[in-house]
Nucleic acid binder design. Structure first.
Length: 335
DNA sequence: AAAGGATCCCGCCATG
DNA sequence: ATCATGGCGGGATCCT
């Protein structure tokens, strides 16, 4: 369980990535049922830290000692082609061996790499830097087409705004989907930018217009329960299946089928948290024909079973989370 | 639990 | 010439 968060910065830190970490973990949203953290920004020598923006500096009061107490240590974007201060690397290594979780945004992955924490580990960074990351750290398993990678204790995320997705992912994994949604609402972003797991989306903002697949996406999202083939979707979009598949990838970064099962798992997650429907029924409502299919995809995408997920995040109490000052309820344990 | 059948989806290529 | 289209083959994945 995460209760304290430290962000490590040094000269040249990028304000946006620093800012999103402050926004995600430094805001008090307890009135809406989200957890609050002991949140600190730390640097080797406290004082004025220049940012990557000329003429803008931040005043940091905490030194690296505060990192020692943090359950989650975050690394925002930092100059990727210069060595990080040895004290920072030591602090990160210590945090890791102590059992803390680590999160990097954008070029922050290079600092984790310098600390030797990426060897043999799946990770990512901004698409402009993936090659450099792989070259500098040959042992790292760099993935280039994802918004973020969660490899157990270390989460690395792609450029800029993908850091928000990684933060929301952490909230989801630690506190459940409804808390993640609360935080997302607070930050006014989509709860799960999951249509596109890709960093690259050819047409950046698929706004509602005739040129776009948005209507079909909306329809799909609203009709998860019906079994629908990709061919039928293509017909609905007035395209050949081949063109539909291509356009779909261009706009969402995924394939139709993957997008759909993703939405279905998200829906099932909510049902597990907020209702007491049987797995069988949830499977039906989410559009998985059978409970077996639900278990299969849920396990594949979430690394756990629907039942286990419900035990940690669900139960009837969780349904009232709107009103109740939240602490995650420890639902029934046992096998 | 495993295998055959269906569906999906991507590289390739001809077409407009 | 460049670009979007869409048909096909077959490897991957899913379902039963």
């Amino acid at each position: 369980m995460i209760s304290s968060v430290a962000v490590v910065v040094h000269d040249g830190v990028a304000p946006f990535e620093l800012g999103l970490l402050c926004e995600a973990f430094g805001q008090d949203r307890t009135d809406r049922g989200a957890p609050s953290f002991d949140f600190k920004v730390a640097t080797p020598q406290p004082g004025r830290v220049p940012t990557s923006v000329r003429g803008l500096a931040v005043e940091v009061t905490s030194d690296l000692a505060t990192v020692e107490a943090a359950d989650l240590v975050c690394v925002p974007a930092l100059p990727w082609n210069v060595p990080a201060p040895p004290a920072v690397l030591a602090a990160l290594q210590a945090a890791y061996t102590r059992g803390a979780r680590l999160l990097s945004v954008c070029s922050g992955a290079f600092v984790l790499g310098q600390a030797g924490l990426l060897d043999g580990r799946k990770c990512t960074t901004h698409w402009r830097h993936v090659c450099a990351l792989q070259e500098q750290f040959p042992e790292a398993l760099v993935e280039c087409d994802v918004l973020y990678v969660d490899d157990g204790r270390i989460v690395t995320s792609a450029g800029s705004a993908a850091g928000i997705d990684a933060c929301l992912h952490l909230f989801r994994a630690e506190f459940g989907a409804s808390v993640a949604t609360t935080v997302a609402r607070g930050m006014v972003v989509a709860p799960h930018r999951d249509g596109g797991q890709a960093q690259f989306i050819d047409s950046p903002i698929p706004q509602t217009s005739a040129e776009t697949l948005q209507p079909v996406l909306d329809w799909m999202g609203a009709n998860l329960q019906c079994e629908i083939s990709v061919d039928e979707l293509a017909r609905m979009a007035l395209m050949s299946p081949r063109t539909f598949a291509r356009r779909f990838r261009a706009e969402t970064g995924t394939t139709p089928y993957h997008w759909l099962t993703n939405q279905r798992v998200l829906f099932a997650e909510r049902m597990l948290e907020e209702t007491e429907e049987t797995i069988e029924r949830i499977a039906g409502l989410a559009g998985f024909g059978t409970a077996t299919a639900l278990r299969h995809h849920f396990g594949r995408l979430r690394g756990t079973s629907p039942q286990r997920y419900r035990r940690s995040f669900g139960g009837p109490q969780a349904a009232q989370t709107e009103a109740a000052p939240n602490v995650r309820t420890q639902a029934a344990q046992s096998a």
